[in-house]
Write a protein that binds this DNA or RNA. Structure first.
Lengths: 232, 232, 232, 232
DNA sequence: GATGAATGAGTATTCATTCAT
DNA sequence: TATGAATGAATACTCATTCAT
């Protein structure tokens, strides 16, 4: 299962995004700034550059080179470097988190469901792509608060809500005994990646954690959670 | 006790740092780059600017203006913008974390000790100063990994080690039953500030959390931890 | 003959260099840093500024203003101020010395040939353009020895070699009796411009010497040389 | 004889300049900017720095360090960096050329006298100290023409006059047959150091020429001169 | 519509000069 | 009087943005 997810993260660029490229090639020419394939091409180049360098150190020339489009063209699609960055964040947020919530639909065993979702989430959030994105977004949080806020609210927070729904349902059926499910959700998500998230963010863990480490951490986290919140 | 600490964080600038400024004014003049008061003045200005703008967007001119010193003077005290930033990180790390570990020396009630330490740590880490510092450091992690890594290793990681000592001692005496205390330490620290840390980092929580919210979150976290790891 | 050359030196900027500017204007646009006219424009501005101020005192802003190009453009054509200066030296060396050696091909009367070549060389070397270049190059000789060395080796030294060839041929045919033609060549070149070169270099002679003065000095020098080295 | 001169050049700093330091130590304190020893100390430091770096690249801090005086003190003795440089040039010109004309007083053999004087002059002018000074002076000739002009007029030119006197006397007595002794003087001086002066100035000859090379060059030059101007 | 050469305000850093001690 | 810390204008160089082609 988590091996399925593994391909999820790493193939984001290839599959998740190209869907948008199904352009109607019949029309002779697209209006300025209207070709989704070109837009996509720019976003992908920008992503590679911003990921490696961060917002400030990335130059529009770098992006130009990486995307294979001219400077002028970029400015037709995006008003400024800042807007390009914001759109990039929005874009990836949509794409990355789109499939992750399926794990929560399952009505099978609670522990299994939590471990499955937790593993997928932990893998995604500690992946190179997402760590870079988070760093970029956190780095400009002070200057462009809306970007990072939105990133969080539409990304992690939405996951939180879905997860909370699952917990609520289990509280209702008496499987769990949780006084404050909002707080418990935060706790559970943190427990999913204890010892991995911060290390990754600060660069103290070189690459993404192994499947095995993720599985071990998530399992331990879920068990702590269940021992604490299962009715005695 | 934690209320004592509360003043600790918010008065860092006023109390913690000015101690150094008690310079013997009798001596003729201080050597170039040797006046601690001036050094402090520069660090404080730099802190304000870096906090608001991040490393890249902050200009030395901004810092000059904010610190009220001339450009030349800054370069007498710090070799470069980068060094100034690193020194700032080191400085605050030293000052901020210096007193926090006292809570772990207590040999009183375990739950009380954890709640005391957790509250102090959560307050510190979600404070404006420290959030800004973390953002700055995370923002440049891709390009200057040594800075952020060092920040983590000398800050959070050191706290982790101290806390783990306490857990180990309680496992030895049979008060706790923990298979992997390293992992458990990470879990506990995350539980201290579930729902607060990320929100703060991403700018989704405007100011620092209230004393009351901290206390509530920490207590809930500690209780989850103890329920999960207390021998049945 | 030397009057033909006279126009050579003073019209260098107008004629010698603009030849390159005959660009085919049909092509769409020239690649960055590839337009010879613009390159020339920058070199001419730089020449004016470096000539008046020397390498260090000349600022890139001055050159920007004088050349009528933007700073960015200069940096597309030349990597640095230093490189611009070196290219300028190379450029003028090539252009200025290109036609001077024709006088040495002549197989007419030796005295006439020496006077013709000496006049052309003296006029060139004491011209405003070349005096400025030499000053610039000598001024940085201590710090950037490669520039000035190259200037000498590709400029004066090469002329020396050609001239020595002529002397060698005349020694072989018994027209001259010279024990050391290398030294004799240096002597002859110095005799060409005795009393003019140093005065010009040190700024003691305001403008370039008159045609008449050059002719007189060169003739006298050649006669000294021939009296000394003609077989008795 | 030329070995005596050799020590002349290399001991300039030690002997020639300290004479000025014979200060009357009885007076309690010297007026600001009036202590010749301190002035000398500054000039020596400045000389070392300007020689190695040239006018522009030399910083007042370098001079401060090298001279062992404070910045303020330098500005008491010299109004500006520029004035310091000018004074330095004047100073060294006086000292260096002061003893060289003794060779011209001799009323012995003409050839011997010319070789003696020529050797001393060539050694002096191609010495490290004087080459550095000339480079410095030539490098700023465009911006500060008075400095370099004065350097030439009081240095080389004055020597020229003395030498011309000797030639004139020999023309009067029929030993030489020279139509234009002014020009002949320039020719003779150039012949003294053919192949050495320019090479040294442009940095194509690493250190000062050997005694042997000087002797050889001067002798050859004098012989050319005499063959050309001795009455047949 | 797409291009990329040109622009010039902005950057970090240096250094001649001043002036409080 | 001598000092050297402080100043801030000036420097070489970069890069987001524009606009002629």
């Amino acid at each position: 299962m988590s091996s399925t997810k593994a391909s999820h993260v790493s193939s984001i660029n290839a599959s998740g995004l190209e869907a948008v490229m199904l352009v109607d090639k019949r029309q002779r020419r697209l209006a300025a700034g209207q070709d989704p394939a070109k837009r996509q091409q720019i976003l992908e180049g920008a992503n590679r550059v911003f990921s490696h360098l961060g917002f400030d150190a990335a130059s529009m020339n770098d992006i130009t080179r990486e995307a294979g489009v001219s400077k002028g063209t970029i400015y037709v699609y995006f008003d400024s470097k800042e807007e390009l960055f914001m759109e990039l964040c929005n874009h990836y947020r949509e794409v990355l988190f789109v499939n992750i919530y399926n794990f929560l639909e399952d009505d099978g065993d609670l522990r299994e469901a939590l471990i499955g979702f937790g593993s997928a989430l932990a893998e995604l959030i500690t992946s190179d792509v997402v760590i870079s994105a988070q760093r970029g977004v956190i780095g400009v949080a002070e200057r462009m608060p809306s970007i990072s806020r939105e990133f969080y609210e539409r990304g992690p927070k939405r996951g939180q809500a879905k997860l909370r729904g699952l917990l609520d349902r289990n509280v209702a059926t008496g499987v769990l005994d949780i006084p404050d499910t909002e707080l418990a959700t935060y706790q559970l998500v943190d427990l999913f990646m204890s010892g991995m998230f911060k290390k990754r963010l600060y660069g103290c863990m070189e690459g993404p954690p192994s499947q095995e480490l993720i599985r071990r951490t998530v399992t331990a986290g879920v068990d702590v959670f269940l021992r604490a919140y299962r009715p005695s």
